[in-house]
Design a protein around this nucleic acid. Sequence first.
RNA 1: GGAGAAGUACCCAAGUGGCUGAAGGGGCUCCCCUGCUAAGGGAGUAGGUCGUGUAAGCGGCGCGAGGGUUCAAAUCCCUCCUUCUCCGCCA
Length: 425
Amino acid sequence: MLDVKRLRNDFEEVKRKLQKRGENLGDLEKFEDLDKKRRTLIQETEELKQRRNQVSQEVAQLKREKKDADHLIQETKEVSQKIKEIDTELKETEETLQQLLLSIPNIPHDSVPVGEDEEDNEEARKWGDIPVFPFEAKAHWELGTDLGMLEFEKASKVTGSRFVFYKGAGARLERALINFMMELHAEEHGYEEMIPPYMVNRTSMTGTGQLPKFEEDAFGIREEDYFLIPTAEVPVTNFHRDEIVDGTSLPIAYVAYSACFRSEAGSAGRDTRGLIRQHQFNKVELVRFVKPEDSYDELEKITGHAEKVLQLLKLPYRVMNMCTGDLGFTAAKKYDIEVWLPSYNDYKEISSCSNFEDFQARRANIRFKRDSKAKAEHVHTLNGSGLALGRTVAAIMENYQVEDGTIRIPDALRPYMGNKEFIGK
RNA sequence: GGAGAAGUACCCAAGUGGCUGAAGGGGCUCCCCUGCUAAGGGAGUAGGUCGUGUAAGCGGCGCGAGGGUUCAAAUCCCUCCUUCUCCGCCA
């Protein structure tokens, strides 16, 4: 959510920046009228309330003196009626304004390249060498089936499309990666570990920006009005919702493991094979709550933490600075880390690291005080995948495959895999 | 799931219709006392948000949330949420 005061005082500037996103901002123009109407109604009702309060005092005084107060009571009756009418209109206006504010995306940072779609994303850096196979390389879904690591058809039977069973070495690999990543971030990068609830309420989904605009992307639990989390970002960021944290405790950093659930509405036909696009996948997520002046340094830091995982696993990747048209609703700036995937003969997103500035903090009402006497300010929030596990498994399987159909285990992962050297031998 | 009880400021807690933005503790800040620590004495401090104003300020809201009754609600009524206790069920 944007700062109402900024929107009020700097409307054209904000609008100009939002237009870089190339989104339809149809309702934005209604802001000024709604804002003005709201403030007029507030002034009207408050004036009447002040009057009512004064008269109530007088009535109380008269009653105590056992005097007659009927004429004052009559007057206040009418005033109260009027207040009720104005308050009803005010409430409707505020509701409309709130919905409008919740539907406005974040303002892109000045360092974000202007562009329409993924074609215009800029490569920030590249790491590692793309493997060359002197044999016909297999895709991970082939390897997974051949080696008994992944069962797609069983999952289709048991649940439906876009689900998978990890089995044997596949399950072990996934679990090893969870431990590897959690320990790296907790012990080397200073994050506190978390395992969050996998369902959250509507307020939490609104707090991080999944709602109200993107309800069709989430799986909902109707009876409770809960949602399956699409990422641990939602519960972990909302962990501090409606709180004022001590400024000296910033930055607060959590690393959370969770399953993630996405309906993938609108992705029919995309990435239909393998682990790349599932309705349920595991992810280790990094979340940081920081002071506003630090948030862009922090974005570099969190991106580095995610990159470190790929470096230790020796998987080639590149970092993309997402353009204005590909930023997503909530981010002010975002880096996607893309891992090399031989089956795609291309890089594929494996982590997304975003600075939301105060966009989520306003929605979720997360603030801090620099000291006990200071005024509360909104924190800046950031998160980054560190990493998406399914895609990491796919990347390891494909990049580390050997001609005999087995998979070499990356050195860094061997302690977590019973010190084995290969899968399939 | 059933039955009870409770939700008041940073924490504990008093308060059943008007003089309560809210007693009293604790905490916190300052001072005194004290060789140090502990303890003691005194004074002070009460949040947040919205509107308005250059500002000091003024005003509205606020006692879990939302409605209602009333001239007037922390206080009465209704709905919901959360926590606790007991029972049931259960990994």
